[in-house]
């Protein structure tokens, strides 16, 4: 019962994040919305694992958390520097070679 309530609350939170991704006036609102949506997905998978009596889903949820983190970092870095190479590093010099 408790898990079901938590899952319902998660659904509401996911909807709210979706609304923010849709309305978000700036770019960073949207990035943050996707990031928090990913976190909600992680929680959702863990909750589903407990709802269906398979707590080993928690491991999978942890992997999702890793992907989410790296993905958000990649997107933000892309916007800051325009590429994935180190800022001011080898990539810019490498293109001249």
């Amino acid at each position: 019962m408790m898990f079901a309530a938590a899952t319902a609350a998660l659904c509401v939170a996911m909807l709210l994040a979706l609304v923010r991704a849709l309305l978000g006036p700036t770019l960073f609102d949207r990035v943050l919305a996707v990031n928090s949506f990913g976190t909600k997905t992680v929680l959702m998978i863990a909750m589903l694992g407990f709802l269906t009596d398979r707590p080993d889903f928690t491991d999978i949820a942890l992997l999702y958390a890793l992907i989410n983190f790296v993905g958000t970092l990649a997107v933000l870095k892309f916007f800051r520097y325009g590429s994935f190479a180190r800022p001011g590093g080898r990539a810019q010099q490498g293109e001249g070679e």
């Binding site: 849709l22 770019l27 949207r30 996707v34 997905t41 589903l48 889903f57 999978i60 992997l63």
Partner: peptide
């Protein structure tokens, strides 16, 4: 288009949740 890219990311996450529900954990990942 930027909002669309972000929404497609969200769509993928939703699809992954869906795959987990139908027990396709590897596909979801």
């Amino acid at each position: 288009l930027f909002a669309i890219v972000m929404l497609s990311g969200i769509f993928s996450l939703l699809a992954a949740t869906f795959f987990v529900v139908v027990d396709g954990v590897d596909v979801a990942f």
